[in-house]
Write a protein that binds this DNA or RNA. Structure first.
Lengths: 339, 339
DNA sequence: TCCTCAATTGACAACGTTATCATTTATGCT
DNA sequence: AGCATAAATGATAACGTTGTCAATTGAGGA
């Protein structure tokens, strides 16, 4: 059985409150007393019991991060989440959340209602659906959303700039000489998806490149979607010279499809994506893509949540951070005979 | 402020102990009383406070899963870990652990010493190094290891059968007609790594295929290692017709290298790996590989730990589960002119 | 030396459960 | 009816902290 604060107090010849003060670095303790207490702590190998602290402070000291299935994008987020976990007093509880999954809902509800977590960070593609909305409103548990489907003034969020990222990539392709650029679009109810599409369209317009409806293809942002969309695109009378996947997963599917068809990338067709998944650099050729500053986004989100939890108003409750291009081998100028 | 057990007792006209009995499904409560209590719980929207329960039961109801950096293999594990989290009373705390990282050590030490976790699941490549060993011994926190570097009778573990998996794959390659099979080996201090190498060698011997030392190449099991090793292998006077990566990461590196060199896979050289990472099926051609039953391994490990935590002796403290082959497009018979 | 005020210290209540054991109530048997 | 026994219930003490506020100590000034 490990030592308690009482044992320490006894050994250090003082009250438990004084020991508590030393542990929590509160003022009003003489140097001499502090040293006695520290020595006693050392001797007894004492460590405060976290459950007791949690109970009396009515805080779980735990943040719940909602993740959809543990996929590629998620592992990037997770990596940073864990990294930040070190620096905070809060522990981080990963909870997977599928809107349709009854079990995950029950578990989450228990977590929130039993006060096992103080706050939530919601990561895409999770979002505040009616169930979450009810639960959060009813329990009053604070939360921060990462790249929400829709932005409303009440919801604190941190997001990457999808519009600007898509604009930059499309601009880059145009400047390379492409003017038949296919875009693999994603779910329509997703704000990021719409922003990316608009960023693409905006760049076309600015550079006076004719926009063709048949070059905007549904991909659902997944591998199979990109795969199918690329086959369709290449079957068009005037096929694209570049395929811009609204997500890397879709772009990878497209890349796979082109290679299946024997189309050379990037010599005949350029491919690029969005998200900068780790495997974007491990396929051949490396996938050019748009990177959100995921690390910074996650860090800002968690910090924002902690600010809210500790009643310090965060500097801003709505943050959008700029994206940047990551150019690799999958993009090049279009074949000259097609210009 | 949410309701407490006291409020429920008051409303239901009984003692808090009776409410506690109802909550925990203990016997000795009349149907009538139980209904009154349940009604009161409903009315007050009561949920028990977990921190209080933790304190009085001296349990954190939390299991810590030690992960190395959030990479590919980890996300597979994680996915299952989260899935299992639903089914248990225990919450799961992910903690990254780098032996050299002071911060991660400090955090882990705090978690264990402050009784914030009841037990640990250690996942590869994390292992019981001297620091962990001390910490675990001193605090007496139980743990289960997944595929330990070294197996000792005292340490409970769950592992995949690396020897058998490597044997099966090598056998398969031989039966396809390969007899110049390179093997990309991994860290020598890793049990799995050694088992895989021996499985490879055993199959060669059984089928009387001459073993060549120059075809066993160091790869460190990572992408770059595989990349380099493949280049070296293909530069040999008698290059291999198949490259068996001891890990998928190495195999992917090899695949990448071959494609860079313009070598056709699988027509000229076959490639296969070990681990069945998600992207093994997303490269072109799909990577043949050996799959550990990761889901089952993780599930068994967590169940084993919980058995130990609740003082029920698990059926077995050492479990090895069979691997299986996953054949995809990256393997084929060797070119006929080379046979 | 005494007084005032600030700094230090401590006694004890709270936090919301579960655990122990005594007490009350119901049941079955003679 | 009376008694033994089992079942249901409750009073109260933990669990190990932090928070409140009163008590004590020490320093500085008249």
């Amino acid at each position: 059985m490990s030592a308690t604060i009482k044992d320490v107090a006894e050994l250090a010849q003082c009250s438990i409150k004084t020991v508590s003060r030393v542990i929590n670095a509160e003022p009003h303790v003489t140097e001499a007393t502090r040293n006695r207490v520290l020595a006693a702590i050392q001797t007894l190998d004492y460590a405060p019991n976290f459950s007791a602290r949690r109970l009396v402070q009515r805080r779980a000291y735990m943040i719940c991060v909602l993740l959809h299935e543990a996929g590629f994008y998620q592992s990037t987020i997770l990596s940073k989440v864990l990294d930040i976990g070190y620096q905070q007093d809060y522990d981080i509880l990963i909870q997977s959340y599928y809107p349709s999954h009854t079990k995950s809902k029950e578990k989450l509800e228990a977590l929130v209602r039993e006060r096992r977590v103080d706050g939530l960070v919601i990561t895409p593609p999770c979002d505040v659906d009616p169930f979450l909305s009810d639960l959060l409103a009813q329990s009053g548990v604070p939360y921060v959303q990462i790249t929400p489907l829709n932005r409303t003034p009440e919801v604190p969020y941190v997001a990457g700039d999808d519009y600007q990222g898509a604009y930059l990539m499309t601009e880059r392709l145009i400047l390379m000489g492409h003017w038949r650029i296919a875009f693999l679009s994603g779910p329509r109810n997703h704000r990021a998806s719409i922003d990316r599409l608009y960023g693409y369209k905006a760049a076309l317009e600015v550079y006076r490149v004719p926009a063709r409806d048949d070059l905007v293809l549904e991909s659902l942002y997944n591998f199979d979607g990109g795969h199918n969309a690329a086959r369709i695109a290449m079957g068009l009378a005037e096929p694209p010279t570049a395929i811009f996947g609204g997500s890397d997963e879709a772009a990878l599917g497209a890349l796979f499809a082109l290679q299946e068809m024997g189309v050379k990338v990037p010599e005949e067709v350029s491919v690029c994506g969005f998200d900068d998944l780790p495997q974007a650099q491990q396929v051949w050729p490396g996938l050019s893509t748009v990177a959100h500053p995921v690390d910074e986004i996650v860090e800002r989100a968690i910090r924002m949540l902690i600010s809210i939890l500790t009643k310090r108003e965060p500097e801003s409750r709505q943050v959008v951070l700029p994206s940047r291009l990551v150019m690799r081998g999958s993009t090049a100028a279009p074949p000259p005979d097609l210009n």
